[in-house]
Design a binder for these strands. Structure first.
Length: 586
RNA sequence: GGGCCCGUAGCUCAGAGGAAGAGCAACGGAUUUCUAAUCCGUUGGCCGCAGGUUCGAAUCCUGCCGGGCUCGCCA
């Protein structure tokens, strides 16, 4: 039995107060529980929480809002002290007993007030999914890092989660890569830095193809041969995929991201032809200009565009949509998931709308298919990333710089660093990762972001290293005090004496972790969690500056360390949900 | 042209019916320290424009202006 959240407790208290007033005839009727909204009060001097109940009911009850607030404040029991502010908010100061009780249950609760899901079926997260045969660049960061955070949040909620890296390892561009490789490759370069060379020749293919369109035909031909498992092309393809996978393994390892499966497009290859035939036989798809396509109008399905979804080209080759449809079928049969999340950039929105609509027409299932789009990353110049125009900043380069910067900072802080020198490298990696991952995750998922090297490498302000710093600082306090977190749980907390306003702010912030988490999960927006953790950290730092934690008074020290312990616990858990480590020493 | 997204402080962006915010930058303070990767303060706003709905609009609706993405044989 999980404890009632403080918000629920407040809601009930207000509901009780309206019932009491209704019985007394002071208001016409009790409020409805569902209509009571409780928010964190943005004016800490008048309380921790606030509600707009009076404004909402003013009309129904035919009473001025401030009058309602006055009556409600009078009817509340002594757990809460209500005050009115214009235009009609009821602000609530919560008693120390209530705050202490909720903090105490937060202290022992590993799920930090979050209720576990009852969903027993797995959720599949399809993320990262880079195209192979090119080096991972910063444009690949978003899907990987956002997908990983979403996956971790789902797990925390209690879902069974399957992470699948749907590699682009079978598309049209392979025809081009093969043609380019045979015509333009520098073998020495290829041996030295294979992915760079493949990216270079792919780029030169585009240039040459502009002059010589026959190259495009050649590429289509080679692709068709590959898809028909021509031995030579297949061998070349295998080699490229192998090289790419090794490189990707290395970078995922660096980012500390793991997948349950790497079912790329090629994994579904043998299912594509039967799928098309099946769709054709069942009249889901029909021939059009030599291609096979699904016309949504045939089924009375209205989409933003009238264009059909092509699943087989004139030349018999299959498309991205085909393997997506095959993947849906495979996942249904293999895992029967309650949901499949596709973490890809926003430009694929229409594609997924079509694919989802097509699978609803063709398949029989109750799985929820969700596109989780993210905004594209652009350079300050306005150009999008892509290997085509050479605007490539390799992911390795970004991580290298972040790591070097962290290492330099560690060296500069001389005696202050609490970590032995042989661990500096590992620490620098952890900090650098935090800067880069948090730098991406803190930005709203759906907005386009401008890639600013310096911003990703910043360790000040709203950054990953700032949060890590707070966490490490707290552990430093425990080390200094010679106490463990466990030893610091107080019987009751003083919310009226010195430092009480800081403690109250931190308490209400700590107690709203579940809200921030639920919002982040419901909207699949890790930036909400980032914002929460940053706010908590800022408030902790203010508290730290204002109130000395370790004092001569053992009781005061333990009580303050109790707050520190909770802050550290939430930051560690929260960073963990973002795929970021929280070292105990920096 | 159709669809979707965006326009908030000098810059980068949160906020999506309830009392305009953060980071960075700038300026001024705090360090024989409990870790200054920090904190405190100041400066900075017709929330793109115009209507409408509402007790209340940055937020919802309509129109307009400006920008981005997308609209069968790429992924």
């Amino acid at each position: 039995m999980s404890a009632m959240s403080i918000i629920s407790e407040i809601k009930e208290a207000i509901l009780d107060a309206t019932k009491k007033l209704a019985d007394e005839g002071a208001i016409p009727s009790a409020a409805e529980g569902s209509k009571i909204e409780i928010d964190i009060c943005n004016r800490p001097e008048v309380g921790e929480y606030q509600t707009n109940i009076a404004l909402k009911h003013s009309k129904d009850w035919r009473l001025p809002p401030l009058e309602i607030v006055e009556r409600l404040a009078g009817a509340l029991d002594d757990r809460f002290k209500g005050t009115a502010t214009k235009p009609g908010f009821l602000n609530l100061r919560v008693s120390g007993e209530v705050l202490s009780r909720h903090l105490s249950s937060l202290f022992t609760d590993e799920s930090l007030g979050v209720e576990r899901t009852s969903d027993k079926r797995p959720v599949i997260v399809d993320y990262s999914s880079p195209n192979v045969a090119k080096p991972p660049h910063v444009g690949h960061l978003r899907s990987t890092v956002i997908g990983d955070a979403i996956l971790r949040m789902l797990k925390f909620k209690g879902h069974e989660v399957i992470g699948d890296n749907h590699l682009g390892d079978w598309g049209t561009h392979f025809g081009k890569v093969i043609v380019a490789f045979r015509n333009f490759a520098d073998q020495a370069e290829f041996r030295r830095a294979p992915l760079d060379e493949l990216a270079r020749i792919y780029s030169s293919f585009k240039t040459f193809a502009e002059q010589d369109p026959s190259l495009e035909d050649k590429a289509r031909e080679e692709l068709a041969k590959l898809q028909a498992k021509d031995p030579e092309n297949y061998k070349t393809w295998q080699e490229f995929v192998e090289i790419s996978k090794n490189e990707l393994e290395r970078i995922y390892d660096r980012l500390e991201v793991k997948f349950d499966h790497w079912h790329g497009e090629s994994f579904y290859h043998d299912l594509l032809s039967p799928l098309c035939e099946d769709y054709e036989r069942r009249k889901v798809a029909r021939e059009s200009d030599g291609a096979l396509a699904i016309f949504f109008g045939d089924f009375g399905v209205k989409l933003p565009t009238d264009t059909p979804l092509l699943i087989r080209k004139q030349d018999g080759a299959f498309l991205y949509a085909t393997s997506d449809l095959a993947a849906i079928r495979y996942r249904m049969q293999t895992w029967n998931p309650s949901k499949i999340l596709y973490v890809t950039d926003v430009r694929q929105s229409l594609h997924f709308e079509q694919v989802f609509a097509a699978s609803k027409i063709a398949e029989n299932f109750d799985t929820e298919l969700v596109h989780v789009p993210f905004g594209i990353m652009k350079l300050a110049s306005g150009a999008a990333f892509g290997s085509r125009d050479g605007n490539v900043i390799k992911l390795d380069a970004l991580l290298d710089e972040a790591e070097e910067k962290a290492l330099a900072l560690i060296r500069d802080s001389k005696g202050k660093v609490a970590v032995p020198e042989e661990e500096w490298g590992a620490l620098a990696k952890t900090i650098g990762n935090a800067a880069v991952k948090y730098g991406d995750l803190r930005q709203k998922r759906t907005s386009n972001i401008i890639f600013d090297f310096d911003e990703f490498l910043s360790f000040d302000g709203d950054t990953g290293p700032y949060l890590q710093y707070v966490h490490a600082r707290i552990h430093g306090l425990f080390r200094k005090a010679g106490l463990t977190v466990r030893e610091c749980e107080p019987r009751e907390i003083d919310f009226d004496g010195e430092g009480s306003s800081e403690k109250r702010i931190i308490a209400s912030t700590l107690l709203s972790f579940d809200r921030a988490f639920e919002k982040a999960l419901a909207d699949l927006t890790p930036h909400v969690l980032c914002g929460y953790l940053f706010e908590l950290s800022q408030r902790f730092n203010s508290f730290y500056e204002k109130c000395r934690i370790i004092t001569d008074d053992e009781i005061v020290t333990r009580e303050r360390l109790f707050f520190c312990g909770l802050v550290a616990k939430i930051i560690k858990t929260g960073l963990g949900l973002l795929g970021i480590q929280a070292p105990e020493r920096l």
